[in-house]
């Protein structure tokens, strides 16, 4: 079976600055929830930005279903079937919830299909229906995150990439976000999840990859990665040395 997404030796960085990704590789197989963990500054978010096309790839290659996608614009990559929900959630603050959902389906040409999918999302998330006319920028952080994740259901991409969906949310709300993530997976999407909290992230995933200093250290089934002694070293190593 061909890999769904293949990232090979990718080097990328911001503007003329130093490379943040220094040869990152990653393999994503269909139907997984793949969690990318690693300490602060490891390049997790940068990797997602490079895959989404927001950040140009300096060298290396990214293949989606065997086809090279590095060098394409973000809108072209979305049309291929990769949807990215960044940390900032990519909402339009002065548009209503319904308008945000409509923008989520911008690439859908058939108006009827678009409206029926919006209806579907609103049925699934009653809170969003209640607030359909409210400006997205005035909602709570949890509701905004819910909107950003629910919005991916409209285009039904093959891969959805979530950059720290739990960031800044109360524990109870975080649990809800993971439930939405599992719902996306149940709808047939492959999920790439970036998490600061390694234990929480891996416990909600099937596969894990560990990133440090812009390189992939190792990867494997989520529970094995979680049990790997190198994880403790990575997160606690410096603290131990200091003590």
């Amino acid at each position: 079976m061909p890999e769904l997404l293949e990232v090979r030796d990718v080097v990328a960085g911001y503007g003329r600055g130093p490379a943040i990704l220094t040869g990152t590789s990653l393999t994503v197989r269909p139907g997984q929830v793949q969690c990318i963990i690693g300490p602060n500054g490891a390049g997790k978010s940068t990797l997602l930005k490079a895959i989404s096309g927001l950040l140009p790839v300096r060298s290396g290659e990214i293949r989606f279903e065997g086809e090279r996608i590095d060098g394409l614009r973000p809108d072209q990559i979305l049309r291929k079937g990769i949807c990215f929900v960044p940390q900032e959630r990519a909402l339009f603050p002065r548009m209503s919830v319904r308008e945000n959902l409509r923008m989520g389906g911008y690439v859908i040409d058939d108006k009827k299909v678009l409206e029926s999918r919006i209806e579907e999302v609103l049925r699934q998330f009653p809170i969003l229906r209640e607030r359909a006319h409210q400006r997205a920028g005035t909602m709570s952080g949890g509701q905004q995150q819910m909107l950003a994740m629910a919005r991916t259901l409209i285009v039904k991409p093959k891969i959805v990439m979530l950059d720290e969906p739990s960031l800044g949310l109360a524990p109870k709300i975080v649990q809800q976000m993971f439930e939405i993530m599992h719902m996306l997976k149940d709808r047939g999407m492959t999920v790439i999840l970036v998490e600061q909290n390694a234990i929480m992230g891996l416990n909600n995933s099937t596969w894990g990859a560990v990133l440090d200093l812009g390189k992939t250290l190792f990867e494997g089934p989520a529970q094995e990665v979680l049990a790997d002694p190198r994880i403790k070293e990575l997160y606690l190593g410096k603290a131990k040395a200091a003590a």
């Binding site: 096309g53 614009r73 973000p74 809108d75 002065r94 409509r102 923008m103 911008y106």
Partner: peptide, 22 residues
């Protein structure tokens, strides 16, 4: 019109929704 408003409010997000901002 949606694409224009979206790009005004959040350029990166508009790109991620499939808008060719160029």
């Amino acid at each position: 019109g949606y694409a224009i408003r979206a790009t005004t409010q959040n350029r990166a997000a508009a790109q991620l929704m499939g808008v060719n901002v160029g």
